[in-house]
Amino acid sequence: MSESINDRVAEAMAYLKATQEAVAKAQSELNAASMTAHSADRAVRVTVGGKGELTSLEFLDGKYRSMAASQLSASVLEAVNQARADMARRVVETVDPLTRLTPRGMAPERMGVDWSSIFGSLLSENSVEKGSTAMDRLRDEIHEDEEEPATPTGRGTESKRQRSE
Rank of each mutant, 00 (worst) to 15 (best):
V128E: 07
D86F: 00
P103R: 00
V128F: 11
S116H: 15
S116A: 13
V95I: 13
W115T: 15
A107R: 06
D96V: 09
A85V: 12
P97V: 11
S117T: 06
W115R: 09
A88P: 13
R104I: 13
G120E: 10
R90T: 03
R104V: 10
L101F: 03
L98P: 12
R89S: 03
E109P: 14
N81E: 11
P108Q: 05
D96K: 04
L101Y: 08
T94S: 02
D114L: 02
R84M: 06
V113L: 02
E109Q: 14
D114A: 04
A88R: 01
E109Y: 13
L101I: 00
V128G: 10
R84C: 10
G105A: 03
E125N: 11
G112R: 04
L122H: 07
R104T: 15
F119M: 04
S124D: 15
E93L: 08
L123Q: 07
R84V: 10
P97C: 12
P103N: 02
V92L: 00
E93V: 08
V113G: 01
V91A: 00
M111F: 12
E125K: 08
L77Q: 05
P108D: 14
N126Y: 08
T102N: 01
V113C: 11
S121A: 15
G131I: 10
R110L: 04
A88D: 09
P97G: 14
L101N: 08
R90G: 01
G131Q: 09
S75N: 12
E129D: 07
V128A: 09
S124L: 05
R100L: 12
G120I: 11
